[in-house]
Structure formats: C-alpha cells, structure tokens
C-alpha cells in the first residue's frame, strides 16, 4: 500500500510516453482537472455538509479570469490562474457570509441561482466576456522558454497543478480543521456545546473550495483553448457531484479514485456524451438509494458492523 502512491505518480508523470494518442492525453488532462474540482466540492459537501451548486459558477468564473488576464491584460497563464483563485476567493467570501446565514433549503437555492447568474453574465456582459462567442485562441502556457503546447505537454501543467491542489486539500482534510468540519457536519449542536463556532469553519471550506475550483477552471480554459458560456454547462456540475457521491462524501482517496474511474471508464466504453450522462444519472439514483454514503461509506458501515458483532 505504501508504494501505491509513488507508483501511481510515476505512471501519471510517464503517461505521455506510454501513449501517443492526443485524444487520450486530452481526456487525461480534463480528467485530473475535474477530479480536482470534485475534491474541492468534497471539502464543501463531504466535509462541511454544504450542498453547493455554486461550484460550477466558480469553475467558469475562474476560466474567464484566467483567459481575460492573458488576452486582454497581457498577463501570463500563471498570473491568470493565480488571479482566478484570488477573484473566486473574494467572490466566495462575499456571497458565502449571507448564504451561510440562510437555512439549508435557501442555501441550495441561492447556490443554484448564483451559478446561473454567472452563466448569464458571461453571455450578456459582452464588453468583458465577448458574449456567446466567447474568447477563442488562448495560447499555450510557457515557462523559462518552454512552451506547453499540445495535450501531451500541457499534461505536465495540469498534473503539476492537480498534485499541488490535491496536496492542499489532503492537508486540510487530515488536519484538525478537517476533523472539526466533519464533526460539525455530524452533529452541529454538539460541536457548539464543545466550543466550536460552525460559521467560520463552513466559510473556510466554502472559500477554499471556491479558490481551488476556480483555479482548476482557469487551467481547464487553456486546455480547451477557448472560453465561452458553455464552461458553465450544468454537465460539469453533475460530473463533480457524481464523483463525490460515488467516491463517498468526506473520503479524500475515495473521491480521487472515483474521479479517475468516472472519467476513464465511459471513455473506455466509447459511449456517446448523452449516453454517458444517462449512465451517470442512473448511477447517481442507484447510489443515493442503495448506498447514500458512497463506496467509502459503505465499506465503513461494513467495518462498524463487524466490530459491533465482535464486541457483543
């Protein structure tokens, strides 16, 4: 087990040498970026218990920020992605405070309307976003004279970003902050009676989730080479959610495994995009009815059952 992580990492780094197909490399790039977004959603939903549809808004806002930085303001890809994180952090802080004061029903609704609002602004604020046509022709990023052109080279940018982002989320999840977040999710009044203030913790998860999602969206924009309102397609949100639910809300490694599986499997099956989403939807329904806490939760329940039997 101890070897699994280094081996996986070596295999991922070597991926461009293992396949010559740009098609596969393209899937791999969007696969890791969507897994990062799902892992960020896992922090918000799986740890903090906030079912937030705002993630798709942050994803798209990040993509636009990065693209506009490069195309209109003459910045580099790197500063664009950094700005995407900054803008999303501020945005999440601004909407997070009032949102977290509402009841959970209203929270979900506001998160959905926020996501839709982002999509509408991207379509309507033509002076900045160029409207439905979007911003095409995003250049490949470069560093120290090396240009990461083409999926096989861009892969290193995507992978590097993903490893850093996932390391941050892992450190957060395994720290005391993660422990307290899940405690609040399990029993908020109990946590309060133990001196924990829920609001700052939830806000932290919401803001960090937004920053990571936005930066992933920023990298994604340069993978696609174009940003248009389709970046807000609800399809992305559905994919992030499926990954979190199947992997098991609150389980870091479960979500990671599910992310890779969910991106790779349907491609391997060569399903059309529509059919794939039908399958995802069916999987979501069955999973929520049969094992509401995902594969990781299901395994945990088995462990508890065995222990309980032993103790009786």
């Amino acid at each position: 087990m101890r070897l699994a992580l280094p081996v996986a990492l070596v295999l991922l780094v070597a991926l461009p040498w293992l396949t010559a197909s740009t098609y596969i490399m393209g899937i791999a790039v969007s696969g890791v970026l969507m897994t990062v977004a799902a892992a960020a959603l896992n922090l918000v939903y799986g740890f903090a218990g906030l079912l937030s549809f705002a993630a798709i808004g942050f994803w798209g806002v990040g993509a636009y920020c990065a693209a506009i930085t490069v195309m209109d303001w003459g910045g580099s890809f790197w500063s664009g992605v950094a700005l995407a994180g900054l803008v999303n952090g501020v945005l999440a802080l601004a909407i997070g405070v009032p949102m977290l004061r509402t009841r959970r029903h209203a929270f979900v609704v506001v998160s959905i309307t926020f996501a839709l609002l982002c999509a509408l602004v991207s379509r309507d604020w033509t002076a900045v976003t160029r409207g439905p046509m979007g911003i095409p022709g995003l250049p490949a990023p470069s560093a120290f004279g090396y240009v990461f052109a083409g999926s096989a080279r861009f892969w290193f940018v995507a992978l590097g970003f993903s490893v850093l982002a996932l390391a941050l989320l892992h450190a957060l999840g395994t720290s005391r902050i993660g422990l307290v977040l899940k405690a609040i999710k399990q029993n908020e009044p109990l946590a309060q009676s133990q001196g924990i203030s829920p609001l700052p913790y939830k806000l932290l998860a919401f803001v960090v989730g937004a920053v990571v999602t936005g930066m992933a969206g920023g990298v994604m924009a340069f993978h696609l080479g174009v940003v248009d309102p389709l970046i807000f397609d609800f399809y992305y949100m559905q994919t992030f959610l499926i990954i979190v639910i199947i992997g098991g809300a609150g389980s870091f490694w479960g979500v990671l495994a599910a992310g890779l599986a969910m991106v790779v499997l349907p491609e391997a099956l060569r399903a059309s995009n529509d059919l794939r989403m039908v399958i995802y939807g069916g999987v979501l329904v069955v999973a929520m009815l049969a094992m509401p806490r995902g594969v990781a939760g299901w395994l945990e329940d088995r462990r508890v059952a065995v222990l309980r039997a032993k103790l009786r």
Binding site: K182, Q186, A191, Q192, S193, I196, S197
Partner: peptide, 23 residues
C-alpha cells in the same frame, strides 16, 4: 452563543445522547 458559553466554562450533555458516530 452556545460555543461562547462553552468556552467560558459551562458545558452540557444532551438528553438524546449525542456523540460523533463516525469518529
């Protein structure tokens, strides 16, 4: 708030027993 009161030195248990089941 309950958390402020707890930090001042007054804590409580609940009638419907509460623990973090997953921990």
């Amino acid at each position: 708030t309950p958390q402020r009161i707890a930090r001042r030195g007054l804590t409580r248990t609940f009638q419907d027993v509460r623990v973090y089941e997953g921990y």
